[in-house]
Nucleic acid binder design. Structure first.
Lengths: 224, 224
DNA sequence: ACAAGTCCGTTGGAAATCCAACGGTTATAC
DNA sequence: GTATAACCGTTGGATTTCCAACGGACTTGT
């Protein structure tokens, strides 16, 4: 599998590394790359992984399987995205999830330990790498915290208020687009789509906001 | 404020560092320490922090305040615990939460950048530090992922099944203790205590499990 | 020994959520 | 252009959850 440095240097993991530095750095990390067929398992629940996964092409899904074999999708990993990075830095922690190729998918596995070891030849690259991987972990942390904070609200309306005010805050404006359609938003907030839809319209009728498709506009009454 | 190396070397951040190495390492990190009175704000929502917080004594609470001033507690940080570490490694990310001293509390703040910089005198200490902070971030990540996975379940019963099977898996046994009383478990799963209590008893009557206080024992029927 | 407080299970009615289904609109495919 | 699918709002009834309150068991402090 041929590796595109042009692609790699734009990923969150290698961001800030130049195309010239990449071969040296990769030499030092000794990554393994592989292609997986659609529906093939990349990582299995119960395994002890010490590698960070990086999607090169296709799409990987992080799934959880319970006693009864019910699969729930915890995350989608697109090209450039990392997966299993939380397990890579916790030796002995067994995978609670599986990772499966949602389509033909190219994957690079990088050993977590080697990332952190001091390596005489590429030490300054390592510093950048560590900053990137820490930033990525921190980013996922905040995203999860936000999700929990929305989900913790008791009613559908409160979940919506929490989510929308958060989006408004993040965009720095009363008017913003959300990255979900209705079904996806309902899934994200873990509520029923139809109930959420009617709640949204109720809020519109009360003058709290207006919306059209993905575009939302919060009104004065929203935070009052 | 006098610093106890004996205490520090046991924290998740400095784990693996000897008491002899600590002074050198701390010199290099140039931390600031301070005492806060009860209810005093340690970090304010909206600030741009680049420091990792470490609780030395007392107790700090991570809280979120919405439009209407309703406070919800996102986390308790006890002596040895870190806080705000996700923000410390994301420059420019503004605090979405506040941190307040729940009682008279001693705090050490360590600059995130200095932790990652290569420092000639203490480089090998840094490597350990980075491993520790990454492990801690990964640990919180997994804890949050698990919580989301439980909360995502639709009904109270499914949330309980998800939580209990997870605890069973983690303990490696059908019999285990949980770290919550009923009210705390209900808060963790975001359900009503009384509804949860009756659901637990229903499951007991159906033969899925038995329990006494914090002790639970899953029966054969549980995963069937 | 007594009072006060905490924890847990139970109950019943109010309220919210879920679920399945339908129609209208818009997007996509052929 | 037409057929198909996706998306969104709406409705009504079954189900679940929430909420407030109570009593019993147990713990703690005096």
């Amino acid at each position: 599998m041929n590796i595109s440095y042009h692609f790699l240097k734009k990923t969150s993991l290698f961001r800030g590394t130049s195309e010239e530095e990449l071969p040296t750095l990769l030499d030092c990390l000794a990554p393994s790359t592989r292609e997986y067929a659609k529906n093939e398992l990349i990582l299995r629940q119960g395994e002890d992984v010490s590698a960070v996964g990086l999607v090169l092409s296709g799409r990987a899904q992080v799934i959880e399987e319970d006693f009864w074999g019910n699969r729930s999708i915890l995350a989608d990993a697109w090209p450039g995205d990392l997966f299993a990075e939380a397990y890579a830095f916790l030796p002995g922690e067994l995978l609670r999830v599986s990772v499966v190729a949602a389509e033909p998918t190219g994957v690079m596995l990088l050993d977590g330990k080697r990332m952190l070891e001091v390596c005489s030849s590429a030490c300054r690259f390592h510093t950048r790498l560590v900053q990137n991987v820490l930033a990525e972990s921190a980013r996922k942390n905040l995203a999860l915290t936000r999700k929990v904070s929305h989900m913790s609200k008791r009613s559908t309306r409160e979940k919506l208020l929490s989510y929308l005010s958060g989006q408004s805050l993040a965009s720095g404006s009363d008017a913003f687009e959300i990255p979900f359609n209705r079904q996806q938003l309902a899934d994200y907030l873990c509520v029923d789509r139809s109930a959420m839809s009617s709640e949204l319209c109720k809020m519109r009728d009360e003058g709290l906001l207006t919306f059209d498709k993905n575009h939302f506009q919060l009104k004065d009454g929203f935070s009052a």
